[in-house]
Amino acid sequence: MSKPARPNPNAKQQAAEARCAAMVHHARTLIAERGVESMSVNEVLRLSGGSKATLVKYFGGRDGLISAAIDQEVEGAMALLRFADPETASLPLADGLRQVLGGVLRFYMLPASLKLYRAVVAIGVREPGTAAAFYDHGHRVLVDAIAAFLRGHAAPTKRETAAFADMADQILHAIRAGLHERAVLGLETAAVEQATIDARVGRALDLLLPGIEAALHD
């Protein structure tokens, strides 16, 4: 007589992971459609088949779920930007920055990115947890990736002392200043052409590159 099959000890965990993935997927969809403020946790749970207990266990609550949704958005952008691509890392400093920053600016100017940015700005004071999640899992991730790129091009004596994150932060603000603000405010509604992005990144690097090179090598 054959013994009854034992339940797979991993099946429960796999089911929980599948529900978590579904929750993040539906959170991303609702955020894109309605904005952060109008994202309903109850609707996410209904669509995903999850429970409040699962939400609390794996995400800690609404802010954690929003963080996970933003993480996935940024992960997708990072893959497209090819930060970790050895070919990108091996490019000369100017060429690598031009490629990476062009991709970052395209990401910032996507309609979905602009919508999320507007929504978080609108509720940031009332929901500081959401604002912190947006900053830490969005902008700061990009800053850290660009800082790592700069560190890889720095002289050995500079790799432990240069303020790479501060440089990366200032570079990001320089390429999007004005253009991104106008789009967030609705003053620019047309899609930004690739030529405009390339020209803006090029002008910013013309101004910034001498200082960046000096900081990395002097």
Rank of each mutant, 00 (worst) to 15 (best):
S2C: 10
E73Q: 07
Q99Y: 03
A132E: 10
E181I: 15
L45T: 01
A191Q: 05
M39L: 13
T161I: 15
L101G: 04
D144W: 07
H180C: 07
L208I: 10
Q194R: 13
L110R: 09
G76C: 04
A89T: 10
L93D: 07
M23T: 09
F149N: 02
F83E: 00
V201Q: 02
S113M: 08
K3Y: 00
L65H: 03
E87T: 11
A148E: 05
H25Y: 08
A165K: 06
L209T: 07
G103N: 04
V44N: 00
V104N: 04
A163T: 11
E188P: 11
G102V: 13
L55D: 01
P210V: 03
P4K: 03
V192E: 04
R203A: 12
V41Q: 05
S67H: 01
V44K: 00
R62G: 02
H153R: 04
T88E: 04
Q99W: 01
G50L: 02
V74M: 08
L209Q: 08
E87W: 03
H26A: 04
A214N: 05
A69V: 01
A15P: 14
N42W: 00
L116S: 08
L172A: 11
H217C: 14
L205W: 00
G211S: 09
G96L: 02
L101D: 01
R34A: 08
Q194K: 07
A132C: 02
V120Y: 02
L150N: 01
A145W: 06
H137E: 02
L209A: 11
G103K: 00
V36A: 12
G178D: 09
L114V: 10
K3I: 04
A131P: 12
I70M: 06
H137Q: 15
L172T: 01
S51V: 04
G35A: 14
I123Q: 12
L91G: 08
N10G: 15
P4L: 14
V125S: 12
L30W: 01
G49D: 07
Q13D: 10
L101K: 04
H137I: 09
H137W: 05
L81H: 02
G61C: 09
E17S: 06
S2E: 06
Y58I: 07
A148M: 03
I123C: 14
A122I: 05
I171M: 06
L47R: 01
N42G: 08
P210L: 12
G152V: 09
D169I: 11
R126N: 13
S38G: 15
L80K: 10
E188V: 15
A165T: 15
P111H: 13
A21H: 05
G64M: 02
N42P: 11
H25K: 11
P210M: 08
T130V: 11
Q13H: 05
A190H: 15
R200H: 02
G60K: 06
